[in-house]
Write a protein that binds this DNA or RNA. Structure first.
Length: 428
RNA sequence: GUGAGCGUAGCUCAGCUUGGUAGAGCGCCAGACUGUGGAUCUGGACGUCGGGGGUUCGAAUCCCCUCGCUCACCCCA
């Protein structure tokens, strides 16, 4: 009976972004580009598709991302490809591939684009999600870390956010971190019996993750576990102290978070995260850190690096939340609606529309003949600031009616005067 | 991968407990108002009640299965 076919929907965890919401995304991206430019970052665009090995080597063979979240498939020639789950590895790959390290300076790069991870979707977490990232390659100077954090705080402020906090930690380097993990594992042996089931498991598989546990009853136990910052080797300790001192000088507020552990293997020394209370369970707005060993992991020369990934979906969520209290109505999307009546008016109306558009005005014109009443209704619905009325009377006098939609007043003008008049009126 | 909640008009939702064959608000269309929108009034269109099966004389309502969405766990941006 029913021969109706089921409509095709967007795949799970992906979504369409429609106007007017896309306006918010544009604002977030514009503000990001402007802020990055102020700190002399330039845009890099890398492919969304990469060789699978790029991520398994850099992000880490036994991380959740690589083990169970990547969209990986064999290309027709059997090469294993992956939809990028993050972009830092790609940026470093490009840096190596184009020998940018030969230029004898550091590189400050940013990117904006989609990433893919096959997780169960929830608030602030999607299978196709967007990251805005920035990377500094070619130096391990602590001021790079501090400057980036200063920049990020500026960006969030410019976007009107206030309820966020910067969490800071150091995870040491390839030399001192294993020592610490060993110490931590030993410390856990005696107390893990009193902890939640997850922690008992993590105590053996990934002790660092225990520090991240949110179970209330475990907190006092975690408080007493050794902190990594107390087990850094002298070089890492000195680096971390320099970063915090620099942040203090810049007046950037932060909270030392000995329990901040990041989930990607390539991080060394400084790690950070900015969280926001408006986001729900996925409260990390952005995160990142230093990755001094990453280049070598993927076959490049030793190259220190520091970077951030901002969750654009979450940032948009937070900005929308912050803007809720403000009463400001949405800005008008349209400057002029041209209402014409009668076949004879179509050609002059089209000419006027073209002229106004060339003058940079946002113009809409009805395509089908319509009564004036209907046209003005449409103009109103579209939020047009002005309407131009062209009918029999206007054609005979050669002067068109220009109506201010909010005031209701209208004025008779010759076609040649309209552009100037509207531009002046709209500038107010 | 696991758990919970929810799927009824374009949107937001009521109706379900106590089965009797579908409602509100908003939006949309038209008219009152023959070339002047936003207000008001009047009228109108629009539903496989997510899908399938079962119970029943009768199912949006009860039962089973299934799909989808959402939130949470996990992990991260």
């Amino acid at each position: 009976m029913s021969n109706k076919i089921a409509p095709i929907r967007s795949v799970k965890g992906t979504r369409d972004l429609l106007p007017p919401e896309t306006g918010l995304w544009q604002r977030v991206e514009d503000e990001s580009r402007r802020t990055f430019a102020a700190y002399n970052f330039q845009e890099i665009r890398t492919p969304i598709l990469e060789a699978t090995a790029l991520f398994s080597r850099s992000v880490g063979e036994d991380t959740d991302i690589v083990m169970k979240e990547m969209y990986t498939f064999d290309d027709r020639d059997r090469e294993s490809l992956t939809l990028r789950p993050e972009a830092t590895a790609s940026v470093v790959r490009a840096y190596i591939e184009h020998s940018l390290f030969n230029e004898g300076r550091l590189h400050k790069l940013y990117y904006i684009g989609p990433m893919f991870r096959r997780e169960r979707p929830q608030k602030g977490r999607y299978r196709q999600f967007y990251q805005i990232g920035a990377e500094v390659l070619g130096s391990d100077h602590p001021s790079i870390d501090a400057e980036m954090l200063e920049m990020l705080v500026l960006l969030l402020e410019r976007l009107g956010l206030s309820g966020f906090s910067l969490l800071l930690n150091s995870v040491g380097c390839s030399k001192c971190r294993p020592q610490y993990v060993k110490t931590l594992r030993q410390a856990l042996q005696s107390v893990k019996a009193n902890m939640c089931a997850d922690c008992q498991r993590r105590a053996d598989t990934n002790p660092l993750r225990v520090l991240d546990c949110k179970v209330e009853a475990d907190q006092p136990i975690i408080e007493r576990l050794p902190h990594i910052v107390e087990h850094l080797d002298p070089e890492c300790r000195q680096h971390f102290d320099a970063v915090t001192a620099d942040l203090d000088e810049r007046g950037v507020a932060y909270t030392l978070s000995p329990r901040l552990v990041r989930g990607l293997d390539y991080y060394t020394r400084t790690t950070f995260e900015i969280t926001s209370s408006v986001l729900g369970a996925q409260n990390a707005l952005l995160g990142g850190g230093r990755y001094d060993g990453l280049s070598e992991m993927i076959g490049g020369p030793p190259t220190p690096g520091f970077g951030v990934a901002i969750g654009e979906d979450r940032l948009v969520l937070a900005v929308a939340e912050a803007a809720k209290d403000k009463t400001g109505p949405a800005a008008s999307q349209l400057d002029v609606y041209i209402a014409w009546m009668g076949d004879a008016a179509l050609a002059p109306a089209t000419v006027l529309a073209r002229q106004l558009r060339r003058d940079g005005l946002r113009v809409e014109i009805g395509y089908e003949p319509a009564k004036l009443k209907k046209s003005l209704g449409l103009a109103s619905k579209l939020g047009a600031r002005f309407a131009v009325i062209i009918g029999e009377g206007e054609l005979s006098t050669g002067r068109y009616q220009v109506k201010d939609m909010s005031a209701g007043a209208q004025k008779e003008l010759e076609p040649a005067q309209i552009a100037e008049y509207l531009k002046a009126a709209l500038a107010k």
